[in-house]
Design a protein around this nucleic acid. Structure first.
Lengths: 262, 262
DNA sequence: TCAAACAACTCATCTATATGAATCCTTCCA
DNA sequence: TGGAAGGATTCATATAGATGAGTTGTTTGA
């Protein structure tokens, strides 16, 4: 029975759920970094003084929540923000599928970001509420134009709490090797695991319309996303404006992932 | 070992997955109707000649896919289309949450439907493709206006394959006791278990605008939904027009359900 | 040197069993 | 008549172990 043994611990709540809580906390504390392997199931079982089946049950939900990834013969790993993961779990804009026989959601394409502005600002009421910080608190405000194919399709307005991302500046942001969530993860140990989006149709503001090559007041899809890390801690508030003339927003609550069979 | 034993059966694919396949097929054949209980886990184990753990694993995914519902001490039941289930899994339009401290998604309200028209028609190309039938095949076309509070917010244009719903007429449709999916289920044994939605922002057609109390060409949210039953068989194609001045579309891929913890 | 064989390790599947918790039904007694 | 007690049945949790499959690294042998 290892030093972290759960034996004789919490009452009322199941062992596997308590173990899950501890694993999640360890994850949020950076005990194992994204891409790294956790100890093997048998070692975890030994360490926490539970059976291997209980360890598997604790891990099961973290895997189905895309927080961990299991690989037979290799181990269990902390999920990383690869381009694929971004595409299938956090990026829902796809080419329209009107008419063609092709099933929706296939042939997704990685958006090419063009940085429009990077600056420090103070949180407005809405962003503050979404990020769980005080109104007026310092934030970083990043405006991006996303190209799909050759065409500008999305304008992203990103707000993140400045103290969470020390020393993040324009150079560093633009020089990131992968996705934005990959940057949060690799440079700041913040792993975005879930997001929540609220959509509405609005008349396009002139400034946005100019970027999208749209006439002002034309209908655009407005998306407010809040991205969360472990334990539902908000990390990023993002407002997107989507030109849906040639693209659409795909919401497929199940089977959104070709790899992940369930 | 029961007559349905899986022993010595399929090679290569796991027992629990084969059992899952058989259960799904039995479900689609109406062996157990919605609301009814399946045989107990121990009985299923006996019947199929597998251990109880394997039965649980087979059922696990059907439960997480909301196809079955487990109740400790009672049994395992085929999910039914209660108002709650509709609200949380198939109805994503909620009051805007701008400004208020209230978390998004709470305080949902059941829409009140007003039937605008019920008629027989021929499937157009898009609907035919979505329903997996031939273009020109007979369909039922139902137009609904949905009120949230006192206000008209959504126009629904529903298309279903006529042969799938024999003898369905306006009286029967309007006289249904519960939701539309409840009608499909109770009267035709068709259990909608999944849906897929594609959203875009468009200028509101005049006919729709009149119903929603909106000026023509104002931005509205256009939703194309295809609803599926077991084994990904399409059942319904629905086009919705949503007035998002006071409401918005909520897309929360995880924790959309207060009951269902995962 | 190269490649096959092997060993050691991982997660995946499957079994068997025990105990607890929730529900339902019957029995029994005041 | 009513309600408590008990028993039977259900799913929920937890354990222990066997076997299989996939991966990795090492050893062996031609």
């Amino acid at each position: 029975m290892g030093k972290d043994s759960l034996a004789g611990g919490t009452y009322g709540i199941p062992l596997y759920r308590e173990l899950q809580r501890r694993l999640t906390r360890a994850l949020s504390e950076g005990t194992w970094k994204p891409g790294e392997a956790l100890p093997s199931e048998s070692r975890l079982a030994q360490q926490y003084g539970v059976s291997i089946g209980t360890v598997r049950k604790a891990i099961d939900e973290l895997v189905s929540g895309r927080i961990l990834v299991r690989q037979q013969g290799r181990g269990t790993f902390v999920a990383t923000h690869t381009a694929d993961r971004l595409l299938f779990h956090f990026f829902h804009v796809v080419p329209r599928s009107d008419g063609h026989g092709r099933p929706p959601g296939t042939e997704r394409e990685m958006p090419r970001p063009v940085l429009r502005s990077f600056r420090r600002a103070a949180a407005g009421a809405t962003v503050a509420r979404e990020l769980g910080i005080d109104a007026g608190a310092p934030i970083l405000r990043i405006d991006n134009l996303l190209l799909l194919g050759a065409r500008p399709v999305i304008v992203d307005e990103i707000s993140i709490s400045a103290p969470l991302f020390p020393d993040l500046d324009r150079q560093r942001f633009e020089g990131r090797p992968g996705t934005i969530y990959g940057l949060y993860q690799a440079d700041y140990g913040i792993n975005v695991v879930r997001s929540n989006e609220r959509l509405s149709a609005v008349a396009c503001p002139p400034a946005i319309a100019k970027l999208l090559g749209l006439r002002a007041r034309q209908p655009v899809l407005n998306i407010r996303r809040v991205a969360y890390t472990y334990a539902d801690r908000p990390v990023e508030s993002r407002v997107s404006w989507v030109d849906t003339r040639e693209h659409e927003y795909l919401s497929d609550l199940w089977k959104s992932d070709p790899d992940h069979d369930r």
